[in-house]
Amino acid sequence: MTLHLLVHAFVRSGDLPPNWKAPSPLGDGDLSLVAGGGFDVLVSSVEPGASDSLFDDAERTQAAALAHHDLLCSLMEECDFLPVRLGIVYSSAETLERAVAEQKPLLDGAMALCSAAGEYTVKVSRRRAANAEKAARPVSGRDYLKARQRRAHQRRDDQVSSEQLGAALGDRLATLGRAVIADSVQNSPDAVAAFTMLSDRQLSTATLSGLELIRKEIDQQGYELQIRGPWPPYRFSQGEAA
């Protein structure tokens, strides 16, 4: 029976230490390397169909995702790499090698971009304020309608200032990092703007100072800045156009 290969990451050939070994995040033996196109591809061997069962319930999906992430975080201490979206399986080493060969220009470009880099998530949120108005009950219909109108105007003003703030922040981050991608804030009710910035894995003093200045300015405008990282370069693993 030919085992299938679940892919975790692309590393440049020879970048991993010679005796480097790591257990498969799927908990079944060690990781294997498939060589091709100037890359070593880190894979877990899985029985055909077994990978499907990894995702057949929430608990397994979560465990597999966290183990994959842990592997990539530990890999950040070893070498440059391109993280692969969890859940990609090749039917054989040959098909994987063929795919690598076909995508070599993209991989080379992304690898160059992500060299010695990590990504940082940057999110701006509205500061949670005690909402005295909400707590106060209107004494009449007229008061209620006035308060409602005031809130509508406030929301409109907030929307405009949030968009301006987001655009300005994106421009500022672009001067600090290698590349910046705007993220959706659809799932974060308090967030008004979010970005992923690719930067040196170890942020330089200049970048840290720049981020701290941005944080202070945003704080003065009544917002909070949250920065997390470095993450493996997930968002930039297909180049800047990802």
Partner: peptide
């Protein structure tokens, strides 16, 4: 991040599910 982004190499591949 793990499930939404990351490299997807187009070729003879399939998602595990």
């Amino acid at each position: 991040r793990v499930l939404d982004v990351g490299l997807v190499v187009v070729g003879d591949l399939r998602l595990s599910v």
